[in-house]
């Protein structure tokens, strides 16, 4: 195996790529992005998700309490106790497989990206990162001040030095594999609600 390593690395030492190979750092133009929050919301909606702006934590709590997904849910797992109590403690489960029937998971998002409606979730906060994908429905809560315009700004704020896993989540899971007909809810969450607080 080590032989293959040495041999492989050696193979790539003689290449035909010539000329200038440095590159300038790219700066994305924010043309037309006058309102990142509105753009963030419209992109989420265009990809089958829902995005709501609420004034504060109390308003967020009310929004979740009255939401269809919560009312229909049997197993609710909440990582934000101020917003919802939940009735399923995923942290107490020894195995992710035991989270297979969770109907709704509520998790904090560290930031939201306006250009593509993506929310960054630091999955180290969860004992079982699989929960983000097993859960039938997902609610992500982001602070209004944490909406950034683009991916460059997002990556500049993420610390990868100790991170084990993190996800940009944009909309619910979906597929168009059957005759290009969009179906929301493939293997992951069937719905996504993003709450922007403040």
């Amino acid at each position: 195996m080590t032989d293959s390593r040495r041999l492989l690395l050696d193979r790539f030492k003689k290449l035909a790529i010539t000329g200038e190979t440095s590159y300038a750092v790219y700066s994305h133009l924010h043309t037309g992005m006058s309102d990142p929050r509105r753009l963030f919301q419209s992109v989420i909606e265009s990809v089958g998700g829902e995005c709501r702006f609420v004034a504060d934590t109390e308003a967020a709590r009310k929004a979740v309490a009255g939401s269809e997904v919560l009312l229909a849910a049997k197993q609710v797992c909440s990582y934000i106790k101020e917003i919802a109590q939940g009735n399923f403690d995923a942290e107490a489960m020894a195995d992710a497989h035991q989270c297979a029937d969770v109907d709704l998971t509520i998790v904090r998002g560290e930031l939201g990206v306006a250009e593509d409606g993506a929310v960054w979730v630091n999955a180290d906060l969860l004992r079982h990162r699989a929960l983000l994908f097993l859960s039938e429905n997902l609610i992500l809560v982001v602070k209004g001040q944490d909406i950034v315009p683009d991916m460059e700004s997002a990556y500049a704020r993420i610390d990868f030095t100790r991170l084990r896993s993190g996800y940009f989540i944009s909309g619910p899971s979906k597929t168009a594999d059957i005759e290009q007909c969009l179906v929301i809810g493939a293997h992951g969450a069937k719905s996504l609600l993003v709450l922007v607080v403040g």
Binding site: E115, D116, Y155, F168, S170
Partner: peptide, 29 residues
């Protein structure tokens, strides 16, 4: 890491006409 921004901006738009895929997973170990 910052190079990801450029590729992610291009990839799904070119592939399926979406701004980004539903999940962009970053696994470190």
């Amino acid at each position: 890491t910052r190079d990801l921004s450029v590729f992610l901006r291009l990839l799904s738009r070119s592939a399926t006409g979406q701004p980004i895929s539903a999940y962009t997973s970053h696994l470190l170990g």
